[in-house]
Amino acid sequence: MDEIRKSLSFLSPDLIKKIEESSAIKDIPKDTEILREGQYVKVIPIVLDGLIRVFSRFSDKELLLYYIKPSESCIMSFASSLKNDPSRIFATTEEDSRVLLLPVDEVSSWIHQFPSINTLFYQQYNLRYSELLNTISHVIFDKMDKRLYDYLVEKSNLTRQNPLKISHRQIASELGTAREVVSRVMKKLESEGKVLQHSNSIEIMVGD
């Protein structure tokens, strides 16, 4: 259980022991839906390795909200579980991931027994709040070429992949726009030397 202690080193030893006794570690393949809108949350994930994508869906469009990286959790799952409300978000593994699953019933009691667990969720709240503000700012104020380029750079950095194996349709879905818009803006970025499109991937051009 060294990976739990490493990821949650800021928690008290007694709480870490409880987590080791009551929680499960699961290896989840890439592109697996682990939470959907309307589902009641039974476990709260903490990513030990890999990457999880959290998004909302409106009609046939999605909007990427944030990524959950190693040693991070999903504050929206935490909030829904405490209120016993159905989830308002979707979560899918962006890559093969190893996830620690905290049982909701235990977490509710740990909050009272071990105040240090609040540190985890306060940290996540602050992080996600800032990320959601950034997402709103991008949607409202940024032109699509900047949104698209920043999105590609972030995904490349997080997944450590360049070129990215991703379709225009998938990009459009995650940015909440139309595929035709993505294709048009991608041509603009390519003409500016910022990206290079291959048959099944997109390469971000890194300047000197």
Rank of each mutant, 00 (worst) to 15 (best):
M186Y: 03
P163V: 06
G38T: 01
N200S: 09
I16K: 02
T93M: 10
R57C: 09
N118D: 06
L100K: 06
D150L: 15
V104N: 01
P29C: 01
P70V: 09
F141I: 12
L196Y: 13
S23A: 13
Y129G: 05
A24G: 00
E33G: 13
T32F: 09
R57N: 07
R5H: 11
I75G: 02
D85A: 15
D142Q: 14
L65H: 02
L15W: 00
S191Y: 08
P13Y: 04
D96N: 08
I25C: 04
S9P: 01
L51K: 02
I75D: 00
P163D: 01
Y67R: 05
G207R: 11
G50L: 04
L175Q: 02
L148I: 09
Y151R: 12
T93Y: 10
F58G: 06
C74G: 04
P115N: 02
Y66Q: 01
V185Q: 03
R53M: 14
V47R: 09
L120Y: 04
S97M: 08
R179P: 10
R53Q: 13
L48K: 04
L189D: 00
K6N: 14
L35P: 00
E180C: 03
K155F: 12
R57S: 10
R53H: 13
F114N: 05
S71E: 14
G193Y: 10
A178P: 01
V181M: 11
N157K: 13
K6T: 14
S7K: 04
I136N: 09
